[in-house]
Amino acid sequence: MEDDENLHALLDTQDDEENEIELSPAVLIEVMEEAWLNEKFSPEILPNKIDFVELLLGQLSAMEENLENVGDRDIKKTLHLLEVDRLRFLVGSYLRMRLEKIEFYVDHILKQENSRLENREDLYLTEAELTFARNFKEGIDNHFEHLMRVHPTIPVDWKNQVIQPNIHSFVFSRSKTNIESIIIDEGNDDETVYVNKDSQMIISYNSVSNLVKKGDVQLV
């Protein structure tokens, strides 16, 4: 919990000085773990955490560099290498999950990103992810165009069938603070509930999506 407070304090300073994020490595790992779980369970792609990813990767390469000078029989070396492997798995798994989502929902995600661009909002994808998404879409579109030319009788409205994530899908959540009201979509009329810190629920994702992005709710 203490770490959480530190984190919030640190994140506040982040707003002031754009490019400088100062986090203790331990907190950094925690942020990464939370991002990993959130990304794993949220049906839609979440705002990217590339700053944290890069910081952590920086830590990892620095550590690997240092280890080159350490003898192989040193106890220290095995433990450090093991930790580096664990963290690489974490970052790798996180990035892979995002790519999977981009591939699956490419049309939907690009549409959303375009409207964010128009409204001058922060993009969810990183620059590299955006390039990947655009190339991927181009490849897919070309491929289908090509296929369809062989069967000209097939109607062309398949292009308008965009695969969208189901934001109504149910998720398990843990609240990190007291939350005044969560709106429950009852299908027909809505209901609001008060949620205590640390309580766990199974709930529709769209009821908590904003809280997840804000960091008040953790998906588990």
Binding site: S169, F170, G187, N188
Partner: peptide, 20 residues
Amino acid sequence: LPHALDQIHRMKKLQGPQLG
């Protein structure tokens, strides 16, 4: 469980307000 609840949610939506 999450998928089951999701299906129930869809059915509720279709059932209309009287059951809601």
